[in-house]
């Protein structure tokens, strides 16, 4: 059996995931009020007391930026990966729930739904966004939890 090494794969995934998180965080930082409106529209967080929603708007972009930097430099790799993955999962579930609401209101099919999910890119097609989030989630978990000694793929 021959063995083929992909020594750069972990580095590529790590850099890709970190770059995406940094880009999302920096983009949100440029429009915090828009992001606040987006997370308010999910109806997941209460509007009173107001600091919960406002801290989430101020803090989630920071979490993405810090998460990107920590994963890039390998600091607290597993812990960072777990928190970022949990955040991505919760956010994706919230997007899915809102999609169901929109479907109920408009009668549109799931594949036709598009709205500004607060992800930093304006209106997006939701099924594509959810698929992308799933891929990003797997990437984050791969960076954080890939086995240390198993870095070669058998072919």
């Amino acid at each position: 059996m021959s063995r083929m090494n992909f020594p750069f794969l972990p580095v590529l995934v790590r850099c890709g995931v970190a770059a995406l998180l940094l880009a999302y965080g920096i983009e949100k930082m440029g429009g915090l009020s828009d992001f606040l409106k987006s997370i308010h529209s999910y109806g997941v967080l209460p509007t009173t007391p107001p600091w919960i929603l406002n801290l989430a708007a101020n803090g989630i972009p920071i979490l993405e930026i810090v998460g990107g930097l920590f994963l890039l430099f390998g600091w607290c790799r597993r812990g960072t990966s777990a928190v970022v993955a949990l955040f991505l999962l919760v956010f994706s579930v919230a997007i899915f729930m809102r999609t169901l609401d929109v479907m109920g209101e408009t009668g549109q099919a799931f594949t036709e739904i598009a709205f500004d999910c607060g992800c930093g890119n304006g209106d997006v097609i939701i099924w594509q966004k959810l698929l992308f989030n799933a891929a990003l989630l797997l990437g984050v978990l791969y960076v954080g939890f890939r086995p240390e000694k198993q870095r070669a793929i058998s072919v």
């Binding site: 009020s33 606040l36 308010h40 109806g43 509007t47 929603l53 406002n54 609401d101 929109v102």
Partner: peptide, 20 residues
């Protein structure tokens, strides 16, 4: 300075998301 002020209710009179 462009961050949201923690103590300000930016959605007065709103108890639910618009779509809900």
């Amino acid at each position: 300075p462009s961050a949201m002020a923690l103590g300000t209710n930016y959605f007065p009179g709103s108890t639910a998301a618009p779509s809900q």
